Amino acid sequence: MIAVLTGDLVDSTAMPLEDYQLAVGIMEKYLAKCQARFSTQGEIYRGDSLQLIFKQPQHAMRAAIELRSLLFCAENTQQPLGITLSIGLGEQLIDGNKPSVSQGSAFTLSGRGLDNTPSGHISLHHESTAFYDALVLATKFLDSVLYSHTQKQAQVLYHYLSMDFPTHTQLAKALSTSQQNVTKHLARIGADLIKAYVVFFEEKLTKESE
């Protein structure tokens, strides 16, 4: 089993040019970061969409949350940058050197799932056991929490995930703020529950892909 993450910028055609260029730059840098961290294959296509292949599917949800948070917390934009994201869990029948020349159920599930995902939200799709139906439901709850975050909270969450759940002191140092401020933000964003979800997702999919 692999995971395919497909994303589409929200209202990209209506963005000011500076915001659009910033959003694409953020996506390009994040694709490179995922390649280094998770050995993914990815590309940006149609100018405002991206697709990432995770041969280790357990990393896909962490990446989706990080990317959404990273875009949303971008500063000096006319409107917060949004992205719609869909993860497909399935097979890869044709293994190309980039997503656009690869095929399999994971790609189909991710692409079709994106078409049915509300703008700015994250969704999960699969063709596996009933357990994954429960994981899909849990993902909907997670998405509801993420969608209510402010830009500052999104920034805190991005660093919390990308630093692999650091202590409050470590996170405060990275964000150049106080430990008390970090503790307040983490409580407001439901960080403990987000961490529990991500850890559970990663542990379950690690076992499934062994």
Rank of each mutant, 00 (worst) to 15 (best):
A36F: 01
A36K: 15
A36W: 07
R37L: 08
R37S: 09
F38E: 12
S39A: 08
S39R: 03
T40D: 01
T40V: 01
Q41H: 01
Q41I: 06
E43C: 04
E43Q: 06
G47L: 05
G47E: 08
G47M: 10
D48H: 06
S49K: 09
Q51L: 02
Q51C: 08
L52H: 04
I53G: 08
F54W: 00
Q56C: 06
Q56R: 09
Q56A: 05
P57K: 04
Q58E: 13
Q58C: 10
H59S: 11
M61Q: 11
R62Y: 05
A63Q: 07
A63V: 14
A64R: 01
I65V: 12
E66T: 06
E66Y: 03
L67C: 09
L67S: 05
R68Q: 08
R68N: 07
L70C: 04
L70A: 06
L71I: 09
L71H: 02
L71D: 03
L71Y: 11
F72D: 04
C73E: 04
A74Q: 13
E75Q: 13
E75R: 12
N76F: 05
Q79C: 00
P80V: 12
T84Y: 00
L85P: 00
L85Q: 01
S86I: 03
S86G: 11
G88M: 00
G88F: 00
L89K: 01
L89N: 07
G90T: 07
E91H: 14
Q92D: 10
Q92R: 15
D95W: 04
D95V: 15
D95H: 15
D95N: 15
N97G: 04
P99L: 09
Q103P: 07
Q103I: 07
S105L: 08
F107R: 05
F107H: 13
T108M: 11
T108E: 11
L109Q: 15
L109A: 12
S110K: 05
G111A: 09
R112F: 10
R112E: 13
L114R: 15
L114V: 14
L114E: 13
D115W: 13
D115N: 14
D115Q: 15
N116I: 10
P118W: 04
G120C: 08
I122F: 09
I122H: 02
H125M: 11
H126S: 09
H126R: 11
E127D: 15
S128H: 15
Y132R: 14
D133R: 12
A134C: 13
V136Q: 14
L137G: 01
A138I: 13
